[in-house]
Nucleic acid binder design. Structure first.
Lengths: 220, 220
DNA sequence: ACCTGAACACCGTTCAAGT
DNA sequence: ACCTGAACACCGTTCAAGT
């Protein structure tokens, strides 16, 4: 990085991303407009273009930062299955903390440095588990589908723009959803919603991950 | 439904949805603006509000219509595993045909009548497979995570706004992606992209589904 | 009941100008 | 180099008015 000369920098890239994330958390997926970001920072909208070339590059940088924080948490190098679980839980925790950012992650390719680093870590764990190259590649893609798919469905079910509530109140929300499913038309679905309402999100998530890992083990 | 009196209807709900889908296909996820829909139909933007109360209800109706078409295809009542595969492949085919509509599906809860009907069908197949109520509920949710997650990642990897190209050229696109992964920094990822590039999308998708089903079978 | 034109409060982005 | 004000081409939505 070269030093930047010029008058003065009123802002920094990080401040822009902070403002964007705060707006995303407060106002939902469309809340982080350039004009609102600028307003939050007390600057004219155009000033933002000094730090990012356009809105999509702000979104990409934000996704990269979230994944970067995830990558800073080293995996414990214990049992590989446990490491995988820790990684998956960490990713879910960080993404559900910022539901408004999830569409940004799902909306574009995972090709930034931090996204690649995350994939690399996953492949390392799988290699440690003894999987040869091809099996590891396929397994990592399947695990990514599960992890991101689970988070996407979880976030999509939350009507609110704000951060996800504690799990207790989410169960109440599911119960409310249940009563909206007419059991005369969709008897199995109504019963299924009832079953799922009594199952805490984290348990569900880990259970699903284990089913995926079992399926991978069975194919060896 | 009551008959509608009044002057004349220049449009219909279906025409609005047709225009919206065409714009989505042509211009990507943000292409279906109310003003462009109206322009396509040769009508003033406000006329659209006669048929739908707001933009989000157009999006919901569009998702419902896509799922409705899926529900019209009856499952063959052959082997349950085969039925599940047919259902999953059909869903993937219909969604990847309209990549711009995928964020709309992933962006909201699956609580419309057609979405519930799809879930009901899934639960019926699983019941036929001999799964008791609770196991079927969990299994159907896991399968939905896989199917929607796989489609989401597939669509997110396509840079273009337009419909997905034939698989042959998609392989070329993946090869191009590979060369962009610096193998010095991400050796395993670079190798994995190479492996995955030689694997056709449909095969990958079915393979992943089978791993999920194996995982479910292993947990019984 | 259904359409139109005008307007309001936004949006991303660009341009010309100031320091 | 970095910021500002003004402008352009959009956007969803509402209001008042016409038939």
């Amino acid at each position: 990085m070269v030093a930047r000369p010029g008058p003065k920098r009123a802002l920094s890239e990080d401040e822009v991303l902070n403002a964007a994330l705060a707006l995303l958390d407060a106002d939902g997926p469309d809340g982080a407009s350039i004009r609102k970001i600028a307003g939050t920072l007390g600057v004219s909208p155009n000033a933002v273009y000094t730090y990012f070339s356009d809105k999509s590059s702000i979104e990409q940088a934000l996704v990269e930062r979230l994944l970067g924080e995830l990558n800073r948490d080293a995996v414990s190098r214990a049992d590989w299955r446990e490491d995988l679980e820790t990684l998956a839980l960490d990713l879910r925790r960080r993404l559900t903390a910022h539901p408004g950012a999830v569409p940004l992650l799902l909306g574009g390719p995972m090709n930034g440095p931090e996204a690649l680093q995350l994939g690399e870590r996953l492949l390392e764990v799988l290699a440690r588990a003894g999987l040869p190259e091809q099996a590891a590649a396929r397994a990592s893609y399947l695990i990514m589908i599960y992890v991101l798919g689970a988070v996407a469905l979880e976030v999509a079910d939350v009507p609110q723009a704000g951060a996800l509530e504690p799990e207790a109140s989410r169960i109440a929300a599911r119960r409310a959803a249940m009563t909206q499913v007419p059991s005369s038309m969709f008897p199995r679905t109504a019963a299924a919603v009832d079953v799922m309402a009594q199952w805490v999100g984290t348990e569900q998530y880990v259970w699903g991950l284990h089913r995926v890992l079992d399926g991978l083990a069975a194919s060896r």
